[in-house]
């Protein structure tokens, strides 16, 4: 399962970077979304994928028995997804406002700040 995930993540990163290298700001935002999703998936896989072994502590014991899934990466991914969602919604609104003001979907036309 891990090799498949690794390849998927690699493809996601490659696609994200390709999109970000385009001149259109819309594609830039799509690239950013893919990039953060790739990072989230990567964290999810880092501690290894363990199937069918939830980290539940049996009654009367203080630690789960045997090999169980690591719950921490999932908590991290949840946090990262929430943060990425907030930040990307901002980026989408920003791109829309930028288009309204600059009237261009082309990063090469955004040279006002390079005086």
């Amino acid at each position: 399962m891990e090799p498949l995930m690794a390849v998927t993540i690699g493809i996601l990163f490659a696609t994200a970077i390709y999109m970000m290298l385009r001149r259109s700001i819309v594609k830039l935002v799509i690239g950013l979304m893919l990039l953060s999703n790739a990072a989230n998936l990567l964290i999810f896989v880092t501690a290894g994928l363990t199937r069918g072994a939830p980290p539940l502590v049996p009654p009367g014991m203080s630690a789960p028995e045997g090999a169980v899934a690591d719950p921490l990466p999932q908590a991290l991914v949840l946090t990262a997804i929430v943060i990425a969602f907030g930040v990307l919604s901002f980026a989408v609104v920003l791109v829309r406002r930028a288009w309204e003001i600059v009237r261009a979907d082309d990063l090469d036309k955004m040279k006002d700040t390079d005086t």
Binding site: I25, L42, T46, A98, M110, T113
Partner: peptide, 29 residues
């Protein structure tokens, strides 16, 4: 107008940096 153009560059590069940071934290974990 200048703020919008500056912000697109600022936001993009800082998000990329955050993603690299996040990936590094994941791999470190």
């Amino acid at each position: 107008k200048a703020q919008m153009e500056g912000a697109i560059k600022y936001v993009t590069l800082n998000l990329v940096s955050s993603v690299i940071f996040l990936v590094a934290v994941g791999l470190l974990y």
